[in-house]
């Protein structure tokens, strides 16, 4: 299945099936269920393209963003999850943490 990424981001399409998740909850879950290597691979791939991706996504307002670019947007939202793991914690989740299934992410505040 093609996520329909524009030409210059075709190489990122391989992450679409796993990381481009619509819900906040789903993105967090995916982060903590991945291995650190998987998270890092995704993180590194996006970090090297940050400027270009943002220039592309920010060319129009959110309301005007075509549906075909949403996948890339969700990928970027997931990047924020990956960044905590890679840049800050050094693990997919905090070392001493409350059971994340009990800290509920309330729907409706979703993008």
């Amino acid at each position: 299945m093609s996520a329909g990424f524009p030409e210059q981001f075709r190489d990122l399409e391989r992450f679409a099936a796993t990381w481009a998740i619509v819900s906040r909850h789903g993105r967090y879950q995916h982060r903590v269920r991945s291995t650190m290597d998987e998270v890092r691979e995704f993180y590194d791939a996006i970090t090297s393209r940050l400027e270009a991706i943002m220039k592309y996504l920010n060319r129009v307002g959110l309301a005007e963003l075509p549906a075909s670019d949403r996948t890339l947007l969700y990928l970027m939202l997931a990047y924020m999850e990956a960044s905590r793991a890679v840049e800050v914690i050094g693990a997919t989740e905090v070392h001493w943490g409350f059971d994340s299934s009990r800290l509920k992410i309330i729907d409706g505040a979703e993008l």
């Binding site: 943002m54 920010n58 970027m76 939202l77």
Partner: peptide, 10 residues
């Protein structure tokens, strides 16, 4: 307003 805002908020 735009993707940048959304990503920043994330």
């Amino acid at each position: 307003r735009d993707a940048g805002d959304a990503i920043s908020q994330e």
